[in-house]
Every structure is written in structure tokens, then in C-alpha cells.
């Protein structure tokens, strides 16, 4: 039961000591085996490829289903020896989870390489064919190269800095300044600039959506107005206090107290009460219903993928 699990001793068949020759051999062998497997899958006929892919999908899914359904060991500790079969499997699932996640991470890393290849192919083609807007492709290559060089240079310097001297910017070198300028000076700022544009887009979208065109849009606009106004403290204070005064002076409600905003049976007229009612009795049930649908849809989709029933649009 130790396959994939973190078994004793520390460095076993699955894990070699960092920096050791055995580790490098393991990496090389893994790469060769992986490449061989990939090539075999690539050249295999479709009728053979599909069952292989489904077997791996099913095994991966089964692991996570078991992890979710199997009783988890109470007060787990890596030094403990599990009691009985149920705990034994529970411990194994607990130990194997990081290894299964590692497999997923390694696959993602390889796929990122394919993504970068796509970018390089598209932008190189655009420059070579002298297409319109090829200037953007040139900027892309310069930016990518600069960030790659300065990022790696800065990282290697920081790795070598065992005394933590680079924590102080007075000790920075060209690589550190370059990395700081590119990441914090450019990338982060441009990210923030894009994010801030949402404020203007919300305004223009809201202007179109909240125009009174039908009964539904009128209800939408009225509810939105109440909720927006209910966030303005000055308006809420005056409104609620006005309701309390109304209750006390007009309806002679002895419980009404403008100072503490208790308006007795007229409580529902307070702006904060109306806004809370809208949120608690209109918004939350609707959102929960949407959540149900999404959750069930994801469950059905996951089930179809796991059992190989989903054809992923290929047979449409």
C-alpha cells in the first residue's frame, strides 16, 4: 500500500536525496519514459488511445472520490501506525494526496511549454510575414526576453544570498533593479490600470441596464437604487430617524425612539430594513437556487467525464 505514499525511510524508491546522482538519473529516466509514453499515445490509433486516456482519467477520479468518501483518520500524525484496514486506507489516501497533486503539477508545467510555443509561433509568423500590428509582436518578444533574463538573474542572486543582504535595497545590483522595475514598476502597474478600468465599464453598463424599458427593468432599477442609497450613512441615518419620529409623533408609538432608531411596528419602513429584506429574502434565495443548479451541473459533468461518457464536443 505504499505506492505513491510518503513511506519510511525519508528517501525511498520514489524520492532521492536532493542534488544526488540518483536524483538526476531518476529525472532522466522519468523524462525518457514520459516522452516514450507520449510518443506511443501520439501514434496509437484512436480506438486504443481512448481506453488508455479513460483508464487514467478513471484512476485519477477514483482516487479523489475515495479521498472524499473514505473515513479520514482522526488526529493523524505521520509517526502513527494505523489501526485496522479502514485507518490503513485512510492514512494511505492522506499520504498519497501530495504525490497525486505533484503529477498534476508536472503535467501542467509541460503544457505551459506548449502554450509558450503557441505564442512564439503566432508572433514570429506575424513578424516574418510583415503583417499589420507586427510592432506589438516585437514588443512582446522584447518584454518576454527582458522579464525572463532579469527574473532568472535576480532569482539566482537571491538564492545565493544566504545572509539576506538583498533584503535591503541599498545592496541591490543591476539584476535586482531591473527585476523590480519590470515586475513592480511595469507589470503590477499595468495590471492595476486594467483593473481600475472596470469602474468606468460598470458605469457605462449600469447606465444601459438600468433604463426604464419594462416592468422588470423598473423593478431592477428601484431595487438597485434602494441598495445603493442604503450604503450612504448620512441618508440612512436621516431616513431611519425620520421613521422613528413619524412613529412617535404621528402614531404615538411609545416604543419609538429617534435616538436609538427603534421605530416599533413601523420598523419595516426604515431604509436599512428594506435593504436588508431585499438582500435576505430576494437576493440570497435566488443566489442559492443558482448555486444549486451550478453545483448539480458540475456534479453531472464531472460524473460524465470520470466515467468516460462525455465526448467533449468532438462528436457534435
Amino acid at each position: 500500500m505504499n505506492l505513491l505514499a510518503q513511506a519510511a525511510p525519508n528517501y525511498n524508491f520514489w524520492a532521492a536525496e536532493p542534488g544526488s546522482a540518483r536524483l538526476w538519473i531518476m529525472i532522466l529516466v522519468s523524462l525518457l519514459v514520459g516522452a516514450g509514453f507520449y510518443a506511443a499515445l501520439f501514434y496509437a490509433p484512436s480506438r486504443i488511445r481512448k481506453p488508455i486516456v479513460w483508464t487514467f482519467t478513471f484512476a485519477g477520479g477514483l482516487f479523489y472520490v475515495l479521498y472524499w468518501a473514505w473515513p479520514q483518520p482522526v488526529s493523524y500524525h505521520p509517526d502513527d501506525i494505523p489501526n485496522g484496514f479502514v485507518e490503513n486506507v485512510g492514512f494511505w489516501l492522506h499520504d498519497a494526496l501530495p504525490r497525486v497533486a505533484d503529477i498534476s503539477n508536472i503535467l501542467t508545467a509541460f503544457l505551459l511549454g506548449l502554450g509558450i510555443y503557441s505564442l512564439l509561433r503566432i508572433h514570429t509568423g506575424r513578424i516574418v510575414k510583415r503583417q499589420a500590428d507586427r510592432g506589438f509582436s516585437v514588443v512582446f518578444f522584447i518584454a518576454m526576453l527582458a522579464i525572463l533574463v532579469f527574473g532568472y538573474w535576480d532569482w539566482s542572486l537571491r538564492e545565493a544570498d544566504t545572509k539576506g543582504l538583498l533584503q535591503d535595497s541599498a545592496n541591490w545590483q543591476l539584476a535586482n533593479f531591473g527585476q523590480n522595475l519590470l515586475f513592480d514598476g511595469f507589470l503590477q502597474q499595468m495590471d492595476s490600470a486594467m483593473f481600475s478600468m472596470i469602474a468606468f465599464f460598470i458605469l457605462s453598463a449600469a447606465y444601459r441596464a438600468f433604463r426604464i424599458r419594462s416592468v422588470e427593468s423598473t423593478v431592477l432599477m428601484a431595487s438597485a437604487l434602494i441598495l445603493m442609497v442604503s450604503l450612504l450613512t448620512l441618508v440612512v441615518t436621516n431616513w431611519d430617524s425620520g421613521v422613528a419620529n413619524l412613529a412617535k409623533n404621528v402614531f404615538h408609538d411609545s416604543k419609538a425612539d429617534p435616538a436609538t432608531f427603534q421605530a416599533g411596528y413601523l420598523n419595516w419602513m426604515k431604509l436599512s430594513s428594506i435593504a436588508n429584506w431585499l438582500k435576505a429574502y430576494m437576493q440570497v434565495p435566488a443566489l442559492r437556487a443558482v448555486d444549486w443548479g451550478i453545483g448539480l451541473g458540475a456534479l453531472a459533468m464531472g460524473l460524465r467525464l470520470w466515467l468516460g461518457l462525455e465526448k467533449g464536443g468532438v462528436s457534435v
Binding site: S75, D79, P82
Partner: peptide, 16 residues
């Protein structure tokens, strides 16, 4: 809340 379990032999802690 109290699950009694035997301990692995000394030095055999599995975490890598």
C-alpha cells in the same frame, strides 16, 4: 477524540 495508535520505530518518520 482519543485514538490510541502504536508509533513507528524511531527514525522512521515518513515525511519527505
Amino acid at each position: 477524540l482519543t485514538v490510541k495508535r502504536a508509533k513507528k520505530p524511531s527514525g522512521a518518520a515518513g515525511a519527505t
